[in-house]
Design a protein around this nucleic acid. Structure first.
Length: 509
DNA sequence: CTAGGGTTAG
């Protein structure tokens, strides 16, 4: 892979062939294990990226390497190209052009998702019409990407039109629930309720659908509406279950303001009320219920209350999960009680739960607050040495830490690690980096990453754009600005008011 | 994609 990287764009087949045979012979002498499909995919996608789509070489180089394009390998390659929509599409078209086309429904759905992320809906529609590989999932993916792009009306229309493409396989309640859930997750709860009311006769309704809508109102901090829907649900004869109540509980606890002590106490009472109501209906609160409350105590930095509550739940015979422990660890870290947090890590391990990157991120967050570069680097090294795989969020906190400290060399080092990691940079990574570079007045570099993030399908925040724009104009970098402007026109991106509405993707687990 | 909890954020 490294050897392939070194071949720069005007390259020749014999060059590529020589490199590949070097790799193969190196493999023999070093006795490397046989390539797995995933590392083959790594090789292919790397080849595609660094050599700017050498499709005319692909077949011969694949043959040389003894690789055959299995459906799984195609899928893996597309996965690795998911942030490079243009190359991914070229690869996909290449697959279609082969004598025996090797696209599968799975790879088809993946390319639809990749294109949807960069809002290439015209291409998506064209592919759906041209190819006969459309499954119900294809439409659900399209629906999700349309909603993510703020095109909710089109999303509902795509949902309605789907049966025409699916030999009249009708969507049922599950798919309807997905539509509503996606609308809610991206903040379009009102629209979801509208759609629900229009079609509840057709699709029916169950506790899941109501839970989705209640969660939607909670997301908008409309607890009053959430409670109204709970009442409506019970009135229409649908029994809420533990998930429904947990959603409501989370709505109350998550966004609850904790500042003046009275408000915090009022929220605690509200949460207790939900617990009481649950028990009245014969539903026992579960680990999730307790974790939600623990999280609220943790946000309020109530270390003692958090620890007591955890004891209480253990006494009730409910075993904490990794989420529960992480909440408590977060609380201890944010109270500066790092030693106790470390002790809790040991307790976790003893009870058979190994900390995740999310757990360790609490420590990184505290190091960031303390501007403790050594603490952060030590833990980071331990993680790299096999303690636990850092997540994108881990990298993001680290980036923030060293940007704040002005240590741009370390930032570069972490960025390279992040680039090489499995998941790669996300919207937040790019945002931090671009803002960091802007604060150092490295406008051209910032601009480069800004363009890169767009190419990878991340929609920058309006603030990021404005910061960069002001910097470029003030420092008279008109040529860079014009290049950027051209890019934005090409991708038809404008930073109007509508862009403030969906700066983030909903969190996925 | 498949109703819910932990990490992140100028």
């Amino acid at each position: 892979m490294l050897l392939l990287k070194q071949i720069s764009p005007p390259f020749h087949l014999h060059q590529l062939r020589r490199r590949i045979s070097t790799i193969i012979s190196a493999g023999f002498t070093l006795n490397l294990p046989k390539l797995e499909p995933s590392s083959d995919a790594e090789l292919i996608s790397q080849m595609l990226i660094t050599n700017h789509n050498p499709f005319h070489f692909m077949e011969s180089s694949l043959q040389l390497n003894g690789i055959s394009l299995t459906p799984n390998l195609i899928h893996q390659t597309l996965l690795r190209l998911r942030h490079n929509s243009k190359i991914a599409l070229s690869f996909f078209q290449y697959l279609r052009s082969l004598p025996s086309p090797s696209t599968t429904p799975t790879s088809f759905n993946l390319i639809i998702d990749i294109l949807g992320r960069v809002r290439q809906f015209d291409v998506v529609r064209q592919l759906i019409v041209e190819m006969d590989q459309t499954s119900p999932e294809t439409f659900l993916i399209l629906v999700k990407r349309l909603i993510a792009a703020g095109l909710t009306r089109q999303a509902v229309r795509a949902f309605d039109d789907a049966p025409c493409f699916l030999e009249n396989r009708r969507f049922r309640l599950v798919e309807f629930g997905f539509l509503l859930d996606t609308l809610c997750k991206y903040g379009y709860t009102k629209m979801a309720v509208g759609v629900f009311n229009e079609r509840k006769e057709e699709f029916g309704s169950d506790e899941k659908v109501y839970t989705i809508l209640i969660a939607g109102w909670c997301k908008l901090r409309r607890i009053d509406m959430a409670e109204k829907f709970l009442v409506e649900m019970i009135e229409s004869g649908i029994e809420p279950n533990v998930v429904t109540y947990n959603v409501l509980l989370n709505g109350i606890c998550r966004t609850a303001s904790l500042h003046p002590e009275e408000r915090f106490e009022r929220n605690v009472r509200n949460a207790e009320k939900v617990f009481d109501e649950m028990r009245q209906r014969g539903i026992e609160p579960d680990v999730t219920s307790f974790s939600i409350v623990l999280h609220m105590y943790s946000r309020a930095h109530k270390a003692e209350l958090t620890l007591d509550k955890m004891k209480l739940m253990k006494a009730k015979g409910i075993s904490p999960t990794i989420e529960t422990y992480t909440s408590v660890v977060k609380c201890l870290c944010s109270c500066g009680r790092l030693e106790e947090a470390e002790e809790l890590l040991e307790t976790m391990v003893e009870s058979g739960i190994s900390p995740s990157s999310a757990t360790y991120n609490c420590f990184f967050k505290e190091y960031k607050g303390r501007k403790d570069a050594n603490g952060a680097m030590n833990l980071y090294r331990k993680m790299k040495n096999g303690l636990c795989k850092p997540s994108t969020q881990t990298y993001n906190v680290l980036l923030g830490t060293f940007i704040n400290l002005g240590k741009m060399e370390t930032v570069k080092e972490i960025w390279d690690d992040l680039k090489a990691s499995e998941t790669g940079p996300d919207l937040d990574s790019y945002t931090s980096l671009v803002h960091g570079l802007c604060s150092k007045e490295k406008w051209k570099e910032a601009c480069g990453y800004f363009v890169e993030m767009i190419e990878r399908g991340f929609l920058p925040q309006k603030l990021t754009f404005e910061t960069l724009y002001k910097g470029l104009i003030q420092s008279n970098k008109m040529r860079t600005w014009r290049r950027l402007k051209k890019k934005l026109d090409e991708e038809s991106i404008t930073f109007g008011s509508e862009f403030q509405r969906y700066p983030f993707e909903p969190y996925k687990r």
